[in-house]
Each structure stands twice: as C-alpha cells, then as structure tokens.
Nucleic acid binder design. Structure first.
Length: 466
RNA sequence: GGCCACGUGGCGGAGUGGUUACGCAGCGGAUUGCAAAUCCGUGUACCCCAGUUCGAUUCUGGGCGUGGCCUCCA
C-alpha cells in the first residue's frame, strides 16, 4: 500500500514568481511565520483561509522534517483597537484579549492548531526599538517630529517582492504626503502617542509602533534573521510584506529575510471579494453554528490556495456532503483496526508536495473512499482505513469518529441518542413481524425529528439530517 | 491611468498539446420489504476571434468579460 513519493516539496515563491524546490536553511529547524489577526473584531471566513492553509502547510512540513517552528502573531496595538477600546472605555488589552481568545476558539473549530509561537506586538516593543535604532544608525531610517520613518530610497531592492517600480508608485500615490517625510514613499515605523493613547517610552518620546515593524521584530526575536517561509494573504504583499522585508534586510546588513514567500488568494463572496467595507462578510463565529467546522475547513481546501475561492450558499452544504461520503466509507470500517505503519498514498502526498494541490489530494482521498467501500478483504480494509485517516491528518480532516460525525454532537434533533435507539429497536421489531406500515411510520416520525435511518447487513444505523 | 489575476459541464474545482480529474446535484440500473447507504453506468465542459500545429481547452497574439492591488483590509 505504501507507495513511493518524490518527497520533494515545491512551493510557488512570490519572490521568484515560480515554483521552487523547498530547501530549508536548517532541516532540523524549519521556520515559518504567518501574519495573524489584528484583534479588534471577529474573523470572517476570508480571514480563516490563511489560517487553515498555513496550518495545513505546517502539518505537511512536520511530516517531512523533525522540527518545525511555526509562529503566527497577534497584532494587539493598532489604531482601530485604540478606537474601540476608547468607545467602550476600557484598556486596549480588554479588547485584544477578548478577540484573541475568540480567534483561537473559532480557528480551533476549523481544526487549526495553535502555532508553536504566538508573539504579540506589545510584548516585542524593546526589540522594535532596538531595530529602529539600528536602522537609524545605518542610515535607513530617520526621526521627524516624534516619528521614526523608514527611508525607502535607501533600499535599492524596495519593490522586489511586489514587483512595483518605485517611481510609478509615487506617481500614482493618492494619499497626501506628510510634510515631514523625506520621500513620499517613506513609511512610519514609530509614531507619537497623545496622553490618552497607549504608548511606550522610546528614544523619540512616548509613542507606539507602526504596523510593519512588529512583524520584523517578532521574526527576529523568535525565529532569526533569515527564515524559511513567510506566509499571508495576497493583500498583504504590498505594502506590508514589502515593508517588512525592507526593514528586516536593512537591519541585518542585507541578509535575506525569508527564502520563500507564500500568498493565498482571496475568498470571493458571489464573485466579489469579501471585505468589511463591502459589508458582505460571513463571520466564522456565526458559520460554526450553521455547519460543522470540519465542513468549513474542507470548503476552504476545495480550491487551490493561490486561486480565488468562490463562496456562496451552495459551498458549505456541498462540503458537508463530501464529508458524509468520506466518513461513510470510514463508518463501514468502524470495526476494522487500521493497519500499522505509514499508509499515506504516494499520489496523495505528491499532490500536497506539488505546491499544496489540495483539490488533487482530495481526489485521491475520494478514490481511497471508493476502494474502501468496495473492499471485502480485512487486510485491505485495514490498510485503506489507515490510508484515509493518515491522509486526512495531513490536511486536518477525518480525525473524528465516523459515528460521531453522523450522529453529531451539535444536536440538530430534539431526540437524544437513547430515544433514537429505542425507536429503531421498535421499528426493527415491526420489520421482523412484517408490519411494514408500523416500521415506516416510525421511520417517518424519526425523519420528522431530523433522524435518518440506514438499514445495513450489520444492523440499523442513523444520522442527523444535514 | 499603472500593474496583476482569472474566465472549465447545474454548482464547487483540478489538469493536460491528442485517451471524459474529482466531489456535490441530476438521470438510468443493481441491491433493498420500501427507503437510505453502497456499487455499476451516465452528461456534444473548457469566453470569442485569429495564428502556430497533423491536432489546442492546454502555446502565441488580439478582443470581450469579471475581479483585485496602487501606503496601513487575509
């Protein structure tokens, strides 16, 4: 069963604009950083996409390397946070801790494991200040009216990641340029805080960090000057990632920042980008009340991570039906002990290793389900069960008990399991007595209560209606 | 205006220079007391127009359409 695989991971690298073979700096310590949430409100389903994608990549990396350090930050100082905290009349930590916890819970429902490190901006202020001092000393940053600004022209490679020529950007700039900027493209590293605003003492007075510096400082502190993989949504490519890259390289004497840059595509709501300003957002917090988290995860993995992903009312029920099929295969094997050893099919692994081609990997998973449904031989069944569960683990699916999936812990029926079993027993008694009218009456009554019956050679099973 | 993606059957969505990916839904059959589940089978799908080619959905050019980015939205 164990087929050979190339075992070579290739990833599309935004820096080079093509698929590159992944070669870690240190195979014994693979480092990945992903931009996490700014915690002032609930995450929407588009926000969940990178969380799920890079959770999966971490799983794949762990399958290949003994030690993976995955860091995903929490941005807990930002002007919107300050605004909302002021509205509620509380410290910003009240807001940020509230929404950080909701974020962890919501993502957890989608099978997203906590990262190894979850650094917070407010816990990295000294490192940011040290980095800015180095940037100033090296002539890449300067102080102006209580601000510290990064001087873009001081870094000739600026624009390399997003492929934007600087002159064009400045020409197309549609924002008023602050008078204290030496160059219109310069961006803020540090800005002064008023007495009411949260702030930290610094060589430039009491203030707070700009957006980009935190990621650079957190990466340096926890992962090192040069990391293997940096991930995030495509919308962060510019300016956020471009600026991060500039700061980090300039404060590390030009050393490479991240060897592989990965960007996931947008999630579209009825063909239009889901965004707060358009008001077409679906919150993960609400979705997990409407569908199993695992179905939401599968819906996000149904498309390739770099492509735009369509989200509409059909997507979630379809994902749930797909899981019904996969778990259906597993339920048929509920009494089969999975075979020991590695049974991840080579074709499945190769699909993931080819720039995380989840649609192709899922096709392999359905092939396994079909084979499992056909299999009669016990050994074959054991291997197929192992293959399904182990493959599922790599993408964060199929880890719950099959009966639990169908019988659901979320309770969309008024009846409890004991009552259902009693009804099934009564119905089977009627069937044995050839009283099919009574048997069908019981089945219809259960169906009305949201419970569907399936008779099989080994007895009657049931599931909650989706 | 500049730059960049994308356009595959009812829906989602891979992929390939020439043999219907896959899943959901639909249809036919097997099975079933009837169902469900399962199995088998099933759909003139690749935006338009040129070009390259023996052959293009796949390459090139043009067009149309949709969407995105252009200083703090994953």
């Amino acid at each position: 069963m164990t087929e050979t695989s190339s075992k070579t991971l290739t990833l599309y690298n935004t820096l080079t604009r093509h698929k590159d073979v992944f070669q870690p700096i240190d195979p014994d310590r693979v480092t990945m950083y992903v931009c996490g949430p700014t915690v002032y409100n609930h995450a929407h389903i588009g926000n969940a996409r990178p969380a799920v994608i890079f959770d999966m990549l971490a799983r794949v990396l762990r399958h290949l390397y003994p030690n993976v350090v995955y860091a995903r930050n929490i941005t807990d100082i930002e002007d919107k946070i300050i605004e909302i905290a002021a509205q509620e009349g509380v410290e910003i930590s009240v807001i940020t801790e509230r929404y950080a916890e909701i974020y962890r819970t919501d993502m957890g429902a989608l099978g997203v494991a906590l990262p190894d490190i979850e650094p917070k901006a407010t816990e990295t202020i000294p490192e940011m200040i040290a980095m800015m001092e180095r940037l100033i000393a090296a002539g890449h940053a300067y102080e102006a009216e209580g601000h510290v600004l990064f001087n873009v022209p001081s870094f000739p490679d600026y624009g390399q990641l997003s492929r934007r020529p600087m002159d064009e950007m400045v020409a197309g700039a549609r924002v008023e340029v602050a008078p204290y900027k030496k160059d219109p493209a310069d961006f803020v590293l540090w800005k002064p805080s008023s007495d009411e605003q949260p702030g930290w003492d610094s060589p430039w007075g009491r203030g707070r960090p700009g957006w980009h510096i935190e990621c650079s400082a957190m990466i340096e502190k926890h992962l090192g000057d040069t990391i293997d993989i940096h991930g995030g949504g495509i919308d962060l490519q510019f300016p956020h990632h471009e600026n991060e890259l500039a700061q980090s390289r300039c404060s590390h004497e030009g050393a490479p920042f991240a060897n592989y840059w990965l960007h996931n595509g947008y999630l579209n709501m009825n063909s239009v980008k889901m965004s707060k300003s358009l008001g077409n957002v679906l919150l993960v917090h609400d979705l997990i009340d409407q569908a199993p988290g695992e179905a939401i995860r599968l819906a996000l993995l149904n498309g390739h991570y770099r492509q735009p992903l369509e989200w509409n009312d059909d997507v979630l029920p379809q994902a749930k039906a797909q899981l019904d099929r996969l778990y259906g295969a597993l339920r048929q094997l509920e009494d089969v002990e999975p075979a020991a050893g590695d049974h991840v099919p080579g074709a499945f692994l190769d699909a993931l290793l080819d720039d995380l081609n989840t649609p192709k990997a899922l096709a392999e998973l359905f092939q396994l389900a079909k084979l499992a449904n056909q299999a009669k031989d016990g050994q074959e069944q054991a291997k197929l069960k192992a293959a399904l569960v182990q493959s599922g683990l790599l993408i964060g699916l199929l880890q719950q008990d099959a009966n639990q999936w169908f019988e659901g812990a979320d309770g969309s029926s008024d009846l409890d399991a004991d009552a259902i079993e009693a009804q099934i027993e009564a119905r089977n008694a009627a069937r044995a007595a050839k009283d099919f009218a009574e048997a069908d009456r019981i089945r219809d009554a259960l169906a009305d209560a949201g419970v569907l019956i399936e008779d099989g050679p080994e007895g009657t099973k049931w599931k909650l209606a989706g």
